[in-house]
Amino acid sequence: MTIKSELTKLWNIATNPSYRAARAPYRAFRKAHGKQTPAQFAQVKQGDVVLDVGGYIGDWSDDMTKRYSVMSHVFEPHPGFATAMSERFADRSDVHVHAYAIGSADGSLDLSDQDNASSALVSDGPTVRGTVRALGPVVDELGLTEVAVVKMNIEGGEYDLLPAMIESGFMQRINRLVVQFHKYGPEDVARRDVIREGLSRTHVCEWAYPFVWEQWARKTPEMTRGEG
Rank of each mutant, 00 (worst) to 15 (best):
G136Y: 08
E158R: 01
P163C: 00
D160E: 14
D160T: 04
T145I: 05
N153F: 03
G156P: 12
G136R: 15
E158D: 06
G125R: 07
P137T: 11
L162D: 00
L144W: 04
E146R: 15
L142C: 01
E158Q: 10
N153C: 09
T131I: 15
G156V: 10
L135R: 14
V138K: 11
E155T: 11
A134P: 10
L161I: 02
P137C: 13
P126M: 10
R129Y: 05
V128I: 13
L135E: 10
R133T: 03
P126G: 11
P163V: 05
S119F: 02
R129E: 08
V149G: 04
V122N: 08
P137E: 10
V139S: 02
E158K: 07
G130T: 00
D140L: 05
E146D: 14
T127N: 10
N153Y: 06
E141C: 04
V139H: 00
Y159E: 01
V147P: 11
R129I: 08
E141R: 13
V147F: 03
T131W: 03
M152G: 05
A120D: 07
R133Q: 12
L144S: 09
I154D: 12
P163Q: 02
D160G: 05
G136C: 08
G125T: 05
L144F: 08
T131V: 15
A134E: 14
D140E: 14
P137K: 14
M152A: 14
L142F: 05
V128A: 11
G130I: 02
G125E: 09
V147M: 04
L121Y: 15
A120I: 07
M152W: 04
V132P: 06
D140S: 10
L144Q: 04
V138A: 07
V122T: 12
S118C: 09
V139A: 08
P126D: 13
L161V: 03
L161A: 06
P163D: 00
L162G: 03
E146P: 09
T127C: 10
V138N: 07
G157I: 08
N153Q: 11
A134Q: 13
P137D: 08
S118L: 03
D160C: 04
P163Y: 00
V139I: 13
T127P: 07
V150I: 15
E158F: 02
V138H: 05
E158S: 04
A148Y: 01
V149S: 03
V138R: 01
G143P: 00
V122K: 11
A148K: 02
S123N: 13
T131K: 15
Y159W: 02
T127D: 06
L121A: 12
T145S: 14
G136F: 06
P163A: 01
V122G: 02
V150H: 06
P126F: 11
T145R: 11
L162R: 03
V149N: 02
G143M: 03
S123L: 13
V132Q: 13
R133Y: 05
T145V: 12
E155Q: 15
L142S: 01
G143S: 07
V149A: 01
V147R: 01
L161F: 04
P163L: 05
T131H: 07
L144M: 04
G143E: 06
T131S: 12
D160Q: 00
S119A: 08
M152L: 12
A120T: 10
I154E: 14
G157S: 13
G156Q: 06
R133A: 08
L144K: 00
L161C: 04
A120M: 13
M152V: 09
R129Q: 12
A148S: 14
L121P: 04
S119M: 03
L135W: 15
I154P: 08
M152D: 07
